[in-house]
């Protein structure tokens, strides 16, 4: 990476670090939540923007990660309750990887557009199960999430939520972004791009397309799971609302808005989308209407999203068919 980028990133991280003492507590909280969604969106894009697979049910993994954390903290577990955030994250990674592997293996065999819809089916199944199996999952109310220990330290509630956990999330966000950057710039990343561009030809140059698509899917599932797992203690409560087709559509919108063909696109998109959503929801309950119109607008006018508009690489991705 060029030195000027490295400097810019270090400056950015430093700036991000001095925000909590400066900003009102509420904003720190919002930024923390946004970073969780940014992780989710970043992971989603390796599947969507890079490999070219649109999943309409990725909120499944947000839910899997969040509920894994909540479930391991349940009072019913007694001495087996897990409070260590590190262990909770590890568990969330494992559960989202397993679910990702299972669901992905089934969906990958299907054609592109139905891939997205089958994922939608799975998130709806998950949602239905969350509601029906209320003995385990708490039904519509969901489960409470308690304060975990971060690196061994358990902070008091207010400090955790509006200060300490911000740094924890920031650190993980930076690490995961770096990991994703490495993946994008690897031969594997190029292979994914090739699969997106021309799946048939990719197969004929020796790339095992099915397996790689599945790998991209599992990576995106893990990122989603981590995003959900970090979000859970922040919000204090997990409920089935986190895994709906609407929240699945949110992440697609974040990526399209920010620019799916650009590495930073999903991050930019997540920040803008989430903050806009909060602002707009203050004014009207008809958020879906605005979201819907925006989706149509972006698809027709700005398919490259904001970052794409900045880099003007848009025209390749109008389809080939007449």
């Amino acid at each position: 990476m060029k030195p000027k980028y490295i400097i810019a990133i270090i400056v950015g991280v430093l700036l991000a670090s001095i925000l909590p003492p400066v900003l009102p507590a509420y904003y720190t909280y919002v930024l923390s939540v946004t970073m969780c969604f940014a992780i989710y969106a970043l992971g989603y894009n390796i599947l969507f923007g890079r490999t070219g697979l649109l999943s309409f049910g990725h909120a499944l993994y947000l839910g899997v990660g969040a509920y894994t954390v909540a479930a391991l903290m349940r009072p019913e577990l007694g001495p087996y309750r897990v409070f260590s955030m590190e262990l909770l994250l590890a568990a969330a990674i494992v559960t989202s990887a397993i679910v990702g592997l299972g669901v992905g293996a089934l969906c990958i065999r299907y054609t592109r557009i139905f891939f997205g819809l089958i994922n939608l089916g799975f998130v709806m199944l998950w949602h239905a199960l969350l509601l029906k199996l209320y003995h385990i999952t708490g039904g519509t109310d969901g489960l409470p999430v308690y304060i975990p220990s971060t690196l061994g330290i358990t902070f008091p509630y207010e400090i955790f939520r509006t200060f300490a956990f911000y740094y924890y999330i920031l650190a993980i966000f930076v690490i995961l972004t770096y990991v994703m950057w490495r993946i994008y710039n690897s031969p594997f990343g190029l292979a994914l791009k090739a699969i997106r561009e021309n799946g048939v030809r990719a197969e004929f140059i020796g790339i095992p397309v099915g397996r790689y698509r599945l790998a991209a899917y599992v990576i995106s599932a893990i990122y989603g799971g981590v995003g959900g797992a970090l979000w859970a203690p922040l919000s204090g409560q997990v409920s089935p609302d986190i895994s709906t087709w609407l929240t699945s559509g949110d992440v697609v919108m974040m990526n399209v808005l920010g620019g799916m063909f650009n590495f930073a696109g999903p991050i930019v998109g997540a920040f803008i989308f989430y903050n806009l959503k909060i602002q707009i929801m203050h004014f009207t309950t008809y958020w879906s209407f605005i979201l819907g119109l925006s989706a149509i607008f972006f698809v027709l006018v700005f398919p490259g999203g904001i970052m794409g508009w900045l880099s003007t690489k848009v025209r390749r991705f109008y389809g080939q068919k007449a």
């Binding site: 490495r182 710039n185 690897s186 031969p187 990343g189 790689y212 790998a215």
Partner: peptide, 10 residues
């Protein structure tokens, strides 16, 4: 090499 997700292509 396409199996490697972390090596730097460039």
């Amino acid at each position: 090499r396409t199996h490697r997700p972390f090596s730097n292509l460039n």
